[in-house]
Amino acid sequence: MAAAAAAGAGPEMVRGQVFDVGPRYTNLSYIGEGAYGMVCSAYDNVNKVRVAIKKISPFEHQTYCQRTLREIKILLRFRHENIIGINDIIRAPTIEQMKDVYIVQDLMETDLYKLLKTQHLSNDHICYFLYQILRGLKYIHSANVLHRDLKPSNLLLNTTCDLKICDFGLARVADPDHDHTGFLTEYVATRWYRAPEIMLNSKGYTKSIDIWSVGCILAEMLSNRPIFPGKHYLDQLNHILGILGSPSQEDLNCIINLKARNYLLSLPHKNKVPWNRLFPNADSKALDLLDKMLTFNPHKRIEVEQALAHPYLEQYYDPSDEPIAEAPFKFDMELDDLPKEKLKELIFEETARFQPGYRS
């Protein structure tokens, strides 16, 4: 834990890192770190609560700039109880001085990944967590956004079992017609939660990839272990087919990539493993919904509104309290091709509203 900075004593240090967030945020305490930044909790002297502050230093890398800009653009436009918001952003007053960006968010005690390492969940908890994931996802999908990296560590939890989806750095506007060349190379989302079509096709992607990830998360809540822990690309596919069985001819016809289709045709026939054999203690309604989410063919996979209306979630289902976005989200430009200098300018502009004396 960093010592509390005395008023006016300059930035606090946390594990050798400068955290320049005073005077409003003090009493910093280390939480963890990701690929390009550290997260601390801090005391907000204005709202009198502890908050989470993520320090991001992305400006050396085009990919990190892209992810940072995506996350900020999306989260500043989203407003939903099951999606983490941005409360404040701290950065230098000029673009030349801006080396880091500090993002202030609600402090959540833990995440689903940490929880599943230590606790076996009751059916009631599984049901409530799944409902909140789908409630947040309904809003995301209504904005025409794909999260693309749903996994237990991106689901934040607090002691009252509130759940918030975080990390929109890989999110995209849904565009089933656009052929994202190089899709697989830039697709760094965790393999275990990846839909089979991501490994088999490169053309376009749809909201059904997020539903697949939610199915993987439900299976993990039922058993405290990942359902498809593939060691590499082909191993991942083999794990999936080992449980779902061989795809039907109709399902194979959806695979545009001939090499991928021929690979699947070359494999020995596998039978589907019954879900109640894998999860003998699970609620039968939970397994019915799991089956509809972990469907090989993305066109037959359940959609988020149908999933919310499934009998497993009937005690929570309330369409009048499951809000959607006001308007579909649009990125003005494809960020993939922009140089990091341009992305830095866009991050600077996007964060201006939090600067003292800002006038829109």
Rank of each mutant, 00 (worst) to 15 (best):
E350A: 03
I84L: 00
E303D: 14
K117N: 15
G37K: 15
G136K: 05
L137E: 07
K138N: 15
I165L: 07
A6D: 13
L163R: 08
N238P: 03
N257D: 08
I209V: 06
L244D: 02
N123K: 15
Y25Q: 04
S360A: 14
L112W: 00
A9D: 13
R359T: 11
N281V: 09
G215H: 09
A352T: 13
M13Y: 04
H178N: 13
D332A: 13
D337T: 06
A35N: 12
L265C: 09
V273Y: 11
R225I: 07
K231A: 07
T295I: 09
G169W: 05
S41Y: 15
I72A: 03
Q306S: 04
L338K: 10
C216H: 02
L289I: 06
N271V: 10
Y102R: 05
G37P: 11
A219D: 09
L258M: 15
T94I: 12
P176I: 06
S142K: 07
G22A: 12
P152W: 10
G136T: 04
G32T: 02
H125G: 08
M199Q: 03
I89C: 02
L150E: 06
D177P: 07
S266K: 01
N158K: 15
H120K: 13
E96M: 05
L264D: 01
L157T: 08
D283P: 04
S153Y: 07
R24T: 07
R277Y: 06
P268A: 00
S246C: 14
A143D: 13
R91W: 01
H80F: 00
Y263V: 10
K99F: 01
Y36P: 07
R24F: 01
P268M: 06
D291W: 06
E314W: 00
K207R: 12
A189T: 13
V145H: 02
E305P: 06
V145S: 04
S208D: 05
A5Q: 11
D175Y: 14
N45P: 06
H61D: 07
L184Y: 05
A307E: 00
N262P: 07
Q105R: 14
T351M: 01
N158A: 08
Y113S: 10
Y113M: 07
I243R: 00
D291L: 06
K207G: 05
A260K: 02
L258E: 01
Q132L: 15
S208W: 03
K73P: 09
N276K: 14
N45I: 14
A2T: 13
V39A: 00
T206Q: 06
Y317K: 07
C161W: 03
Q249V: 07
F168M: 10
L335E: 01
K117P: 02
R172N: 05
Y193V: 13
T190I: 11
W275E: 04
A260Q: 04
P247Q: 11
F129D: 05
D20W: 04
E109I: 00
R301M: 01
S223G: 11
L112P: 06
E250L: 04
K344V: 04
C161Y: 05
N201K: 15
Y263C: 00
R353Y: 10
T63F: 13
K330I: 10
L222I: 09
Q132W: 01
T181M: 10
K117W: 03
D44K: 09
L264Y: 04
L244G: 08
G34Y: 01
L258G: 06
A195Q: 09
M108P: 01
D20H: 12
P280E: 08
P311I: 09
G357F: 08
A189I: 10
R172W: 03
M199R: 00
Q105N: 13
P356D: 05
I95Q: 05
C166P: 05
E220Q: 02
N27D: 04
Q355R: 02
L28H: 04
G169C: 15
T351Q: 06
L338S: 09
M13I: 15
T185W: 12
N158Y: 13
K48Y: 10
P23S: 10
H310G: 04
D162R: 08
Y193D: 03
Y312M: 08
F19L: 15
A174Y: 06
L237M: 13
E303V: 13
K330Y: 06
A52R: 07
M293I: 14
L338Y: 06
H125Q: 14
C216A: 11
Q236D: 07
Y113D: 08
E109M: 05
E334H: 07
L121C: 06
E345S: 04
F279G: 05
Y187H: 07
H299P: 02
A92T: 13
W192A: 05
I243G: 03
K114W: 10
P328M: 09
E81D: 14
A307M: 11
S122R: 14
L146T: 03
G8R: 13
N144D: 00
L287A: 03
A325N: 05
Y30D: 09
L218T: 12
I126P: 08
Q132V: 10
I56P: 14
A327R: 08
R172T: 01
A171C: 02
K259N: 13
R50S: 15
E345I: 11
G230M: 06
D106S: 00
R277N: 06
R70D: 01
R77L: 15
E71P: 13
K259M: 14
T181V: 05
D288A: 12
D321W: 02
Q62P: 15
F228I: 15
E186G: 00
T295F: 02
N276T: 02
D124N: 15
K114Q: 14
R50C: 08
E60K: 15
A174D: 06
E349H: 07
I165S: 01
M293S: 02
R301A: 04
L157F: 11
S284H: 05
T110G: 10
R148D: 03
F59Q: 10
P226G: 08
N82V: 03
L338H: 05
P268W: 06
N27V: 05
Y128V: 05
R277F: 04
G357C: 14
D20I: 03
H125R: 00
T63G: 13
C161D: 01
A6Q: 10
E334K: 13
I302V: 00
L115I: 05
A4Y: 00
D177L: 09
Q17K: 12
L200C: 02
A3W: 08
H239L: 14
D337W: 05
W212Q: 04
L313W: 06
R194C: 11
L258D: 10
E197Y: 08
D321M: 02
K48N: 15
D321Q: 02
K99T: 13
R148Q: 13
L137H: 09
I103F: 14
A5V: 12
D321A: 14
N281H: 11
D162I: 03
G242P: 05
N123L: 08
N82K: 12
A171H: 06
N253E: 11
A325G: 04
I209D: 10
E305G: 00
I256L: 08
S266V: 05
D20P: 11
L335A: 09
L150H: 03
V101F: 07
E71M: 12
E349I: 00
I72F: 13
F59H: 10
K117A: 07
Q236P: 03
N45S: 14
V39R: 04
L130Y: 01
D283Y: 14
I72N: 14
N144R: 04
M38S: 11
V104T: 02
F329Y: 14
V104C: 09
E341W: 03
F228D: 01
A219N: 06
I240D: 05
S320D: 10
N158F: 08
I243S: 13
K164A: 06
Q236C: 02
P226Y: 03
R261V: 10
V104Y: 10
S248G: 02
H125I: 05
P328E: 03
H178M: 08
P152G: 00
S320E: 04
T110C: 09
V46F: 12
R359N: 00
A7F: 03
R191P: 03
D106K: 02
A52S: 14
L75S: 07
P323R: 10
G169Y: 08
E349V: 13
H120S: 06
D111Q: 03
D88E: 14
K138C: 07
T68I: 12
I126F: 14
P339N: 07
E81M: 01
T63A: 12
E109L: 08
E60R: 15
K164G: 09
G37V: 14
K114S: 07
L130H: 00
H299C: 00
L346H: 05
R359D: 10
D44Q: 11
A35Y: 12
A5Y: 00
A2N: 00
E250D: 05
S266H: 03
E109P: 00
Y36R: 15
G182V: 15
S122Q: 10
L76K: 07
F329H: 03
I83W: 00
D336Y: 14
N281A: 01
D291H: 11
W212K: 05
A352F: 03
H310C: 05
E305W: 01
I53E: 10
A92Y: 07
A171L: 10
L200R: 11
K207H: 10
E349W: 01
A307T: 13
L184H: 08
Q105W: 15
Y205C: 02
P93G: 01
D175T: 09
A171W: 03
P226K: 00
H141C: 10
L267E: 02
V104N: 03
D336S: 02
